[in-house]
Every structure is written in C-alpha cells, then in structure tokens.
Design a protein around this nucleic acid. Sequence first.
DNA 1: TCGCCTACGCACCTAGAAAC
DNA 2: GTTTCTAGGTGCGTAGGCGA
Length: 658
Amino acid sequence: MAATWTQVWTPVHEPGGSTEEEEHLRGWVSNTDEAEDVKEQLQVAECITFVGDRKGKGFGNGILHLQNPDGKLIHMPRVRFSDIKDNVVSADSVPFAIVSRYSLRCMYGKDKNQAAKRKNEELAEKAMKEDHPLPRKRKYRRLQGSKKKGCPAMIEMKEVIRFTDYDTNDDSGMSKRAISDHIRADLRNGDKFNFERRIYIRLPSKTDHQSVHTLGKLTGFMNPMHKTVSTKLVDLVGHGVTNLNEMKRHLRAHLHTVLFPDVEKRPSITDTAFYPSDNTIRQRMYAARMQLRIMAEAGEKETHDQFEKRFSTLVIHGFVSLSTSLGIQSGLFEALIKLKDEERTVKEIADTAGLKERYVQEWLGVMVAADIVDINPETEKYSLPPHRIPFFQPGSSVSDLGVLLTELPTFGGLYKKLLDCLKKDGPQGLSYSEYTDFHAMMSNLSGRWVLHHLVQDFIPSMPQIEEQMKSGIRILDLGCGRGLASLVFAENYPNSTVVGLDFSEEAINYGKERAKEKGLTNVEFVCEDAACIPDDWNNTIDYIYTFDVIHDLAHADKVLLALNRILKPDGVFSMIDTDCKTKHSENASNALCSLMYTVSLFHCLPISLFFEGSVGLGTCWGREKATELLKDAGFRVDSITKPVGTDEAHYMCTKKVK
DNA sequence: TCGCCTACGCACCTAGAAAC
DNA sequence: GTTTCTAGGTGCGTAGGCGA
C-alpha cells in the first residue's frame, strides 16, 4: 500500500484561504507509483478524473534525467533553497534541484481542442447548407456537448533531488551561493555525493472545483471506466460471462468485496468509472469477445509485455505465499486474530505469538507490502481487517486456502528429492513417510468440508442414501486418514456402522483415539491396503465414501475392482475427487488446475509412483480418465456433480448389472 | 430485450513546430 | 529554455439500425 494522501498530507493554508474547504494539500512521495496512488485516491474520493496537462521530459527518472547513458552530466540543474514560483516544494534546510515536473488538470478544465471543434462545426454547417450528401442520420444526430467547463483545479507535481550532504541552517546569501557552487562543481566533476529523490505534490482545494462544478456524490458522470473494472470485465468475458446482468452482478461483487470492502471508502454510484452504464458494459463485453476471437484466430495469446507483467506477478506471489505460510505455521495470524482488528505494535504481536520481535517485524513488512496486513502510517501499528480474518482462521468455514498454504514448506523440503526423482536414473517416487504431518494437513484440508457440508448438504442431496443411513446400513470410509468423516458419519447416523480404512497406522490410531474419546461404538478403524481387502468383505458394504483418495493410489484400478467386489448389488459408491479434464489442452489457462498440477507434481504423483507397477494417475487425472477406470472396474457412473462447498467432483456410482 | 455492428464526436496522448 | 499550438493516432461512450 502506497502513501495515503489524507494521512500523509499536511494541510497548508494558501494565501487567501480561510476555511478547510479552501485548503490545498501538499506533501511528497518517493516515486511515481506512489504519486499515481495519491492521484487515484483523490479521484475516487471526489468522483472526478485528472488528465495530463504538461509532463516534463524524463519525469520519474530522477537524476538519470540529467545524465547521458555514460553517467555524464548533460544538464546542470539550478540549485534552489526555496520554491518561490508556486510553492509546491516545501523547503527545509536541505538545498534541492527541480529535475522535472508534471501537472494534471481537472477533467472539467480547459478545452484544448476548442479550435479544432470550431473548425469541424464550420465544415459541417457548410456541408449542410450545400446539401452535401451526408448520411441522413447524421443531420438529425444530437451532437454531444463539450464536457469542459474551464475548471482551474490542477494537481502539480515536481520531481526534486535533495542534496542531503549540504544540509544547512545558514540563511545568508553568501552561504547559499557557496553551497550552490559546491554542488554544481560536484555535479560537473562527476563526484559521488548523497542525494534523496522526492516527488512533491500539491493537490487542488475543493473551492477550486466548486466555483465551476460539483464534487463527490453529485458528479462522476462520463468518467471513463476504471482500469481495474475493465480488467475484471475482460477477465470475466474470458471465463465465459456473456449475459449483461450476470456481468453487472460480478462487477458489483468485485467492487464491493475486493476493491472497496469498506463502505465508507466506496465511490459514488454516479461515478461511471466504477459503475459504468449498461450500454458501456455491453460494448466492452463485445469488444473483449472480439479481441479474444482475433487472438484465438491469430494463435496469439499475449504479447511479450503482457507475459512479463504476468510472470513478475506470478514470481512475486510465489515468494509472498511462502511468507504467508510462515505466518500461519508460526501462529502470527492467530496472534493477529486474537488481537482482533485493533492496531498493534510489532512487540505486542510478537509477544502474543511468543516469537522474536525482529523476525516478526520483517514478516510484517512482507504482509504490509502484499496488502494482507494493514498499517497505520501515523502510528506504525498493524491490524488484520475483519474481512480477511476468515481466510487465516483455523477451522474456517470459508476457505481451504490457508490450510493449503501450510503444505508449501513440506513441498520445499522435498525439492531436492523430487529433483532426483525427475532424473532418468533417479528413484521412482517418494515414500509417504517423507511427508511429515501429511495426514494432519489432509485432515485440516478436508476438515472444513466434512464439518460444514458432509451431513448438512452432501448426504441430504442423496435422499435415498440418507434414509438408509438413518435406518442403519454399513458404511465404508476408504482412505479415511485420521477418520474425521468416519466419526461424523458415526455420530450423525447412530443406527449405521462405519468402517474407516487406511494403510497409515499413525492415522488409524489417531481415529481410534478420537472414537474412544467420543464414546462411539458404531465405528471401527482398520489398517489395511485397499487393494488387498479380504474376500469375506464381498457384498457387505451398502455405501462407500472416498474423498480425494483414488487419484493418489498406486493401484487405483485394483482398488476400484476391490470396491466393486465388496459393494452390495444395490449399494452406492460416492467417489469425491479432483475436478478437471484429462487432456492438458482442456485445462489450459485454468488457475485452479495449475495449483492442482503443482500439488500433483510435489505430492500425489511421487507417492503413487513410489510403488512398483503404479498407474501414476496424478491429481489431475480428469473426468474422462476417472470415468474410464470406474467403468472398467464394473461401476456405472450415474452422475457427476459438484457438491456444495468444494471444487471437487462427485462421481455417484452403482454396480453394473451383469 | 439483447447481440452485433457501424458511425460519430469528444477526449487523451505524443511529438514536433511555432511563439514567447 | 519554456510555453503554447497543432496534427495524427487512438480510446471511449453514445446513438441508432437490424435481426433474433
């Protein structure tokens, strides 16, 4: 988050101004990005747009603007001690040089094209008089009136190099002249000296505008669509949104939940930059569709610059994800949540988490830069806003993302071993034992869905099964891990008996302990390889449930055959598994799939290939391959649906009638 | 009502020329 | 050296026609 103008700026009374309305805000930032941010915040706050008026050459390049590529000085700047002309730069004891400037004018400012417009009008009038064969409709067209109103409001920016080596309080003319000569000599000789780069900004006062037009809630008409809104629109078109009302709903949701979650800071509904008209949205949707079509036909996906931007974002997010994971694992987010959304110091946060202050300070630096944790620039205190809390809360009912992030360090630790697996003469795969705390992570990952959706939405979506469970049937939770789902089944359907089966002894023992604690007698946990289920289980199970299990199995084909063998003829098999396509080409540009493939590469595939004769399905085995294997094993896939609350697919299967 | 398409004019940006 | 003017290219919003 860059500077916040209302917090950083020092209100300065300009000559003649006596009320707050007449105050100009003046201050400085370190770079053009922050300057742009200040402009942006002012625009949103006042529902107007500022457009470029005059931009000095090399604005934003700092001292480079004064030098040629070899570093030789090509322009000697004037050394100043005060900004006499328009008082944009607030002078102190440090001498400075103005290296470039940029002014922006209010969208209702001076009409620079007046002459051209007049000329056009004259030509049109002449053509009408001469009965020029213009298209008929043009004659009756209602011409647009000029939006310009001559508003004098301007944003003035001056880029300044401050010669910090020459800080002096001596105000005499002689001293200033001597310092100026020194600095100029240093610059001319190419001597190394310390300097500080600042962009000073002077914002217009409210009265500058109000003598001409309104501000805030009553204005904003004709503002061009904001880039964040148009980017989202194009993105949504790319994801297949073609209906106007659906697009409006998506954009509104994006605006209210992502861009402006804080109602107070939300732009006016009359601001067409953020609330464009239906016609504008329709036109943009059409243009985006055409663009996509042209790109597809030309076989071009993106330009070099577009990829550069996307790639840099991708790399940055990768690093930030690692730090975020550290914050979850170390309990820093928990500490921030515990401290509520009140602003806290580094020490308070570190003490609450029981961690070293210096490391916590650095971590907070990452979080603030990544806009995850907020900072108050006046107090340098930190807070986690309420709308972000659910994403980092243990046992959250909102998202699995936080849990997923905790897997990153595990993957990182296995990086070198995985590298060996890739080599032709390297090992086939990695053992489950390499993944420490894996079952805990998986339990957490599936936990949200199991606790909040399994018996609330999922089972009721199959009324017949739900009835049978209530009456009493035999349920198998295959690959039960720590047995969370088995326990939920057992608790909610006491007339049924539940078998949790997994080949991890550690996980099974954990499940047994929990069942004992809860006093559940209708659940048993069995440590067994699913492919080797004994024959005496044949035709004994009424309902089989698996969650994200089958694709991990080395011998998934054999396991599915075994499941078909033990399922009663009228039984049901619910296979909940990853949802994607089998062909890579059909998963192209799918962000969720890119995540699943990464999980597969670092986990699902190596643990599967570890075993001799593995089918090595991987996480993204896809609907087509899954359906094929299920059919080969003797199942009929009755439906493939998306259960509420998860991105997985539910393959509801019954036994084929032989 | 919506999608698709065209026409039009306003506004913006940039670079170069002209004026101060 | 700085400011102002101008032309050309481009983006964007509005209007309107037409067919489904």
